[in-house]
Write a protein that binds this DNA or RNA. Structure first.
Lengths: 163, 163
DNA sequence: GTTGAAAGGCCCTCTGC
DNA sequence: GCAGAGGGCCTTTCAAC
């Protein structure tokens, strides 16, 4: 891992304030499988179930644990076409309309970035035709400069943040 | 997965075989919040808890529901620098070594793609220095042609597949 | 698929250390 | 902040319709 973050701070967690090593271990276990019981977590960490519960409750309250979700197999439900779409817009109004696409079922991620493009979208489609239609909507928007699409051929890792 | 897609299948679920509209509704609810009880799901769907349980168990067994995980706030645990890295490799051996990076804590996604690059990585770092170090490792590898990095400025949507 | 019931396990709180 | 015990809810499975 990286080192040298701290100069004068004696606590190892400078940015993750209030997240100690035990918390991180809990987060790691829950990020991998949220079905674990407090009893199981406790035995893995040599802690009592109430102690684990206290920590998890605190981390849920302060937003460190955002939520727990079921991971769906996109291919098994027909969404077998994953793509990254880069797009540049020439004005803010157009960008706002793109951000509104977050409500579309196909749109999984929207980021603004620094680099050769302005925005990156991750979309999971049910068919090439659906992707074509989506790209068509983007082209219809005024004030966009360029769209570049990367169709995913294979996925070799896909998970959430790890503490 | 199964093979044999039927031609004369009258059911609307062509690709998501065995996933009917009720299943999709369950998946949608659990993809948003996996903490819901079977009783709650049942009342939302006008089904009995055992019926819901049966469906969920089946979908977990056949992999439609891959797993349930806790979503961690990357910024709260110190990983506040998200980036997409595009890289082109000139041989397969190098690509294999990149795929091995899936075990790194910072690497969240690895995809091979069609388009102006060969692979896309999503990485979440604890600091700019950590990103620099990671990019340095890529450059040290023989057989890579080009690396392009997009640092994320803002995230406006980030979730998993939706049925 | 639904109802009803029954057993088991876990959550959650409280109390004491 | 952590360990131990009890009430209560939910899960899970079994019947029968």
């Amino acid at each position: 891992m990286s080192g040298k973050e701290t100069n004068d701070d004696r606590h190892p967690a400078r940015k993750g304030r209030g997240v100690d090593p035990v918390d991180r271990k809990i987060l790691g276990l829950l990020a991998e499988n949220a079905d674990r019981s407090f009893a199981e977590l406790g035995s893995l960490l040599h802690l009592s179930p109430p102690a684990v519960h206290e920590r998890v409750k605190r981390m849920k309250r302060d937003g460190t644990i955002k939520r727990t979700v079921a991971i769906i197999d996109g291919e098994k439900v027909g969404r077998d076409l994953l793509a990254f779409v880069h797009l540049e817009t020439s004005n803010w109004e157009t960008s706002r309309r793109v951000l509104g696409m977050a409500s579309l079922d196909a749109v999984e991620e929207i980021h603004t970035v620094a680099g050769d493009t302005a925005m990156i979208l991750k979309v999971r489609m049910t068919s090439p035709g659906a992707l074509e239609e989506f790209l068509g909507e983007l082209h219809q928007m005024e004030g966009f400069k360029r769209v570049k699409t990367f169709v995913v051929l294979g996925t070799y890792a896909e998970r959430g943040p790890y503490p």
